[in-house]
Simulated assay, not measured.
Amino acid sequence: MMIEDMKFVKNFKKITNDAWFKGWHERNGGNLTYRLTEDEVSAVKGFMNEDSEFTPIGINVKNLANEYFLVTGSGKFIRNMTVSLEENAGIAKVDETGENYKIVWGLINGAKPTSELTSHLMSHSIKKEKTNGEYRVIMHSHTTNTIALTFVLPLDGKVFTRELWEMATECPVVFPSGVGVVPWMVPGGAAIARETGKLMNDHDVVIWAHHGMFCAGETLDLTFGLMDTVEKSAEILVKVLSMGGKKQTITSQNFRDLGKAFNVDISEDYLG
């Protein structure tokens, strides 16, 4: 079996294709990383080149030592992942110190992993610890309506959470921990990685002001579904605001009743 025939690779390609059709990945916008399971690593071992050189990550992610990640490439177009994965994505390995990585498969012809790799690995590190290894996916997309809202709403996670929750009943069930918001920062470095990581301690959704969204999840499908839910809620809110604003909405008590019915812990921080 070739790498591209393996289930996790097919799922990766499907998610990137779905995200392209959503309009979230213009040109080379957005990126995706997936942490391989032990069985998946064993399955691809024969295809790996372990002699490649290590590159500094820019931060320490010790708990990701010797982990492998399927990553999209820097400057590569999401829409091309299904055309030629090896040219547009690759498998990266973190060294035993958690400070360096190397490409062991793919990203041919001198290609490099996403410029947001530092932010991805920081979030992976935090989520691995927080979820006992359950979370394996970090997805960053340029979600149109969510970006639009960062120009008109206060850049406050509590405000964004409450506004997004009120747009669709399923929202507090799908992302009960709410969303965090990072004010505009230069992307691609350690500083924005650390700010994103701080919020990933408490949230699965982090919005980058005037830029896009970061989501974390157990599987590719769940992470894509989380982002899709947030972005749809943002689209509804954009339409509501364009129609003159809310005339009625879901109340705090409604949310408490919803949490009880669905056995979801909805924080009072968003219900005051």
Rank of each mutant, 00 (worst) to 15 (best):
T97N: 07
W165V: 09
V44M: 13
L164W: 02
T37D: 14
P187A: 05
A19T: 15
K62P: 03
W165Q: 05
G157M: 06
S252G: 12
G75M: 04
K232N: 10
S52Y: 00
I78C: 08
A234P: 03
E231K: 03
G23Q: 11
K76M: 10
E134K: 08
S84A: 13
H140K: 10
R136C: 14
V174D: 01
K260F: 11
L155R: 03
N80G: 02
T169E: 15
R256I: 08
W105A: 08
D257W: 06
E195G: 03
F214C: 11
D39W: 01
V264Y: 06
A19F: 07
F262Y: 15
H142M: 03
K130C: 09
A111N: 13
T249V: 12
V71H: 07
V61N: 01
G90A: 11
G110Y: 09
A148H: 00
G245R: 02
G188L: 04
R162C: 07
R162S: 15
S119E: 10
G259H: 05
G225P: 04
M1D: 04
L271P: 14
H142F: 12
W165S: 10
M122K: 11
D221F: 06
K14S: 09
M167Q: 14
E218H: 00
V9Y: 14
V137G: 12
D202N: 13
S115Q: 06
D265M: 10
G157I: 05
S52W: 03
V264D: 10
D156K: 02
L64E: 09
E86K: 08
R27W: 04
A19K: 01
G106S: 05
S252K: 12
G23S: 12
Y270K: 07
S242P: 00
L164H: 05
S42R: 14
E4V: 12
P113G: 01
S125A: 13
V181Q: 05
L85I: 15
M185F: 06
L164G: 11
A216N: 10
G30F: 06
L222I: 11
G189N: 11
V71T: 12
G212A: 05
L241M: 15
Y270D: 11
V238Y: 00
M185T: 09
E163V: 07
F21Q: 07
N28Q: 09
E96I: 13
T16N: 09
F77N: 11
G272Y: 12
N201G: 14
G110C: 03
L241C: 01
M48G: 08
R79V: 10
M227Q: 10
V230H: 02
E218T: 00
G106P: 02
E26C: 04
K246R: 15
V71G: 07
T223D: 12
M81P: 02
I103D: 01
W105T: 06
H120M: 04
T251Y: 03
T169G: 00
V230G: 02
F224K: 07
A19E: 07
R136Q: 15
V173F: 04
K93Y: 03
P172R: 01
D51Q: 14
G189A: 10
T169L: 15
L222K: 12
T146P: 04
L36S: 06
